[in-house]
Design a protein around this nucleic acid. Structure first.
Lengths: 231, 231
DNA sequence: TGTTCAATGTCGCAA
DNA sequence: TTGCGACGTTGAACA
């Protein structure tokens, strides 16, 4: 790992072309050859970067560039896609290198599977008398998040998303079409459950006779507040 | 901007919970209070981070943590969502600070909007006698990229993607279904235009009677530049 | 300010 | 390897 603070300009050519005018930035050079160029702001996404596997090469600038103030040119080339990143260094302000060793990696806990688990446990949220058949009900085109039956014994296919976009409605529509071909299940109605359902998704769902259900994750989780676990 | 190389463990609680075991990492502290924790590998995404707007606070460790080897605790809290990131510093190996100033920002070329603009200008690429009706033709479920008419006056809905995946075909299908309900427009045929069209997307498109059109951005841009040179 | 859509998306899993 | 969906997505344009 090498960290450089330098005044530089950057050019990228690959799936698109991009240019960064001359300014002072942080350049992170990882040991796999990958490069990240960060400004002092924004979010975690760098202004420009090169993903591994790639090769790094430091070159002496051409005469024209040398006159423009370039002291060094870094050329980073992606080995598969031939994407190229060129960093023209005008001045290096800081330059630190250190061996970090491998990282044990991130341990995650609690995402969409939690929502699914909670809704399966609290399936009566979908409606009175509704009971769970099973989670991850397998079909030829993939698993339906939850299959349930209502008080009349009619099947309900439930698709769960954290954020209810239009593509989740498409997904559920495909499942419903398939499930309704099964005479043992049909008729199957659909429920689209999410913490938040976008207006366009709701419109499309309701146009197709799919019910929308907004889930309150915090309420479902009860008092098990994740932030409390830190203290 | 402050760059720290430190042996640390990290905890995050917010939309999910995550934990990073003790290891040596790079910690980037931006002047807006945001924090990025990088390992020496992977892609541009940090192992963990906190996005602005957030507050940064350095605390003395509690006794139990001090015994575990913690010399300092950094607490970063998101001002709106109350997401929290806690960094327990065991040892600082490098610590650099420098004022970077604001960044002029990235200049991009070759994204979807560029493609759309060029295809609108060079609409005859779609077919002889085809003429532009308008870009971003609005419908109830969103704007169609380009609406055009062919030499017979029949409507054409064009969906443009940089890379033609299957979801673009789904999108165009939805538009076509809607547009074909309009007696003033129907029948409307579809054209799926992209720099690269995946085989599955092509198969699905053609199965639905949607024509596929591969765009050569460099060539189209060349024509554009050439036509500019005439005036 | 909120919503929608693209992205050099990235990442992880399963077939 | 490829396909597919989630992501603490991020970022930008637009209403």
């Amino acid at each position: 790992m090498r960290l450089v603070i330098a005044t530089c300009s950057v050019d990228y050519a690959g799936r698109l072309s991009a240019h960064l005018p001359l300014a002072t930035r942080v350049i992170m050079l990882k040991s796999d050859g990958s490069v990240l160029i960060h400004s002092d702001g924004g979010s975690y996404k760098p202004l420009n970067w090169m993903a591994p596997p790639c090769t790094f090469e430091a070159l002496a600038p051409e005469d024209a560039q040398k006159e423009a103030g370039v002291v060094e040119t870094w050329k980073v080339i992606h080995q598969k896609t031939s994407d190229i990143l060129v960093v023209n260094i005008h001045e290096i302000h800081e330059d630190t290198s250190r061996e970090l060793g491998s990282d044990p990696g991130l341990i995650k806990d609690g995402v969409e599977s939690d929502l699914q688990k909670l809704l399966a446990e609290q399936i009566e949220i979908v409606g009175e008398g509704v009971s769970l058949v099973r989670r991850e009900y397998m079909t030829a085109i993939g698993p339906v998040d939850i299959l349930a039956t209502d008080s009349q014994g009619q099947s309900i296919a439930i698709e769960i998303k954290r954020r209810g976009d239009i593509d989740g409605v498409e997904q559920l529509t495909r499942y419903l079409e398939l499930l309704n071909r099964d005479p043992l299940l049909a008729p199957v109605r659909g429920v689209y459950a999410a913490q938040e359902i976008k207006p366009q998704a709701r419109t499309l769902a309701e146009d197709r006779g799919i019910a929308c259900l907004v889930l309150d994750y915090d309420h479902m989780r009860g008092l098990d507040n994740a932030s409390e676990r830190l203290f």
